[in-house]
Amino acid sequence: MNDMKMADIIGEYREKVLTFHDDSQRKVFYTEVEFPVPDGRLIVSRTDLKGAITHANESFVEMSGYTREELIGAPHSILRHPEMPAAAFQGLWSTLAEKKKWHGYVKNLRKDGGFYWVYATVIPNIRGGEVLGYTSVRRRPSKMKVKEAEALYETLT
């Protein structure tokens, strides 16, 4: 995955190099600018088994700050925020490996360095007993739940 581009960032930023589960790395720039998910919206995406995005609805495109063309084919970890602990995603993948549904609070990183919190649910797409990919649906969480998640994630990073 390509590093984020400084020219895309809006506002004061910090930088960090993220290391993913496959040992690949990405330099990210992130700001303190929050973009709350509007009421009533569902952010929907699908990925293949390797986590590459195959479908993005309009809300996903809008909230991520990327174009649809940039999102399709990109790894879902393009949204990984440096303040999200790796342990949270290990839980996600181990749950999906058991063909079960995963829920969690996630801080996502936008193309412009801003962020948005979501309550995410990921479900394996099972067809004829075989997992063909994953569907992820994210919605607006309560402020109280976000505070709880922030406190928990601080202890895990």
């Binding site: 569902l42 549904k101 990921v122 067809r127 569907t135």
Partner: peptide
């Protein structure tokens, strides 16, 4: 199937 998966996430 996609719509059903989506409903299941909700």
């Amino acid at each position: 199937e996609f719509m059903i998966d989506l409903m299941e996430t909700l």
